[in-house]
Computed example of a mutant assay.
Amino acid sequence: MSENAAHRLLLVHAHPDDESIGQGATMAKYVAEGRGVTLVTCTAGEMGEILVPELEHLAADKEDGLGEHRRGELDAAMRELGVTDHRFLGGFGTYRDSGMKWHDDGHAIAADEIHDNAFWHADLTQAADHLIAVIREVRPQVMVTYDEFGGYGHPDHIQAHRVAMYAAQLAAAPSYRRDLGEAWDIAKIYWGAMSESRIREGLRRLRDEGDTTTFEGMDPDGQLPPFFRPDEDITAEVDAGAYLEQKMAALKAHATQITADGPFFALANNEGQLVWGRELYRLVKGVPGEVGDHGWETDLFAGVPAG
């Protein structure tokens, strides 16, 4: 993080790669502008699917080395984005990826068997205390995390939401855990979002071009997953298209989780500036600042005094 940065952003994510997918361009843009960017990752993603055949031996049911490998992927991704302050909640290995399975309705739910120190089982207050210490140290004016459903139901995303929101509330209470630092009230809190209208537009163009495999099964005119939100729910758009290349490089760094011929890169080649370079948010705490032509804020720090 830039020393003594006047504006400071804290992001709370569940696994390595979530940050690059959701806010990679924003992170790169703010770093380039000299703003402070701190990432807290809650687990090492030990239960993730491995998309690199020669690394399948790292799977949880084999050598169980994926978490350490993804730690290295996260380091590489942060170098691409220029982020120097990234931490694991409570320290690396404190909380393990909980895993997931798919519900018949198409969203994620908790797996049948969960590790003893899985993040999903974390004590909320203890986990929040780890984050409170970071909040009071960094003193961010803005925090970004998931919505209450974690975007698509993953238990670790939901837990990250709960921990982040609870920690933000407790961190502002002067009488709570004075040993964790001086109280700090985060001025603005956002939940990451994706535009339903934009993904429909992008999908429609791909289908018109004969591409039926990118986001296979998604109908441009049908029901979409819950992490795509109607435009009226969105309150901020950070146009970081100039940093799309850095975002794509960060995604490539997460090689065990994201394939170079996958949907992120297919859309990047076609609708990258619109879909991935302009990152969207829902303001859930704080007062909106100046808005742009679309009626959305164009800067997460809009209306927030520097300092």
Results as ranks from 00 to 15, higher is better:
Met194Glu: 12
Arg198Trp: 11
Ala187Ser: 10
Phe215Asn: 11
Asp231Trp: 03
Ala183Gly: 09
Asp231His: 14
Gly241Ser: 10
Leu244Thr: 06
Ala253Leu: 01
Ala250His: 09
Ala183His: 09
Thr212Ile: 14
Ala187Cys: 15
Glu182Ala: 11
Pro230Trp: 00
Asp219Cys: 13
Leu203Lys: 14
Arg229Gly: 03
Lys247Ser: 04
Tyr243Ser: 08
Asp239Phe: 03
Ser195Met: 14
His254Lys: 06
Asp211Gly: 07
Pro226Asp: 06
Ala249Ile: 13
Gln257Phe: 03
Ile186Leu: 10
Gly181Val: 13
Gly210Asn: 09
Glu245Thr: 01
Asp233Val: 08
Ala183Glu: 14
Ala242Phe: 15
Ile199Cys: 12
Pro220Ala: 00
Leu206Thr: 14
Ala187Leu: 15
Gly192Phe: 15
Ser197Leu: 06
Leu244Val: 00
Pro220Arg: 05
Met248Trp: 04
Trp191Gly: 11
Leu251Tyr: 07
Ile199Asn: 00
Gln246Thr: 00
Ile234Pro: 04
Asp208Gly: 06
Glu196Ile: 11
Glu245Asp: 10
Thr214Cys: 12
Pro230Met: 04
Ala240Tyr: 06
Arg200His: 10
Ser197Tyr: 09
Asp233Ile: 06
Tyr243Val: 01
Thr256Met: 03
Leu251Met: 02
Gly241Leu: 08
Arg205His: 15
Asp208Met: 10
Ala249Arg: 03
Glu209Gln: 13
Met218Pro: 05
Ile234His: 05
Pro220Asn: 00
Asp185Ala: 13
Glu182Lys: 03
Leu244Ser: 00
Leu244Pro: 06
Leu244His: 03
Phe228Pro: 14
Ile199Met: 08
Thr259Met: 12
Leu206Phe: 14
Gly217His: 05
Gly210Trp: 03
Arg177Glu: 05
Ala250Asp: 03
Lys188Met: 09
Arg229Ser: 02
Gly202Val: 10
Ile189Met: 15
Ala255Asp: 07
Met194Arg: 07
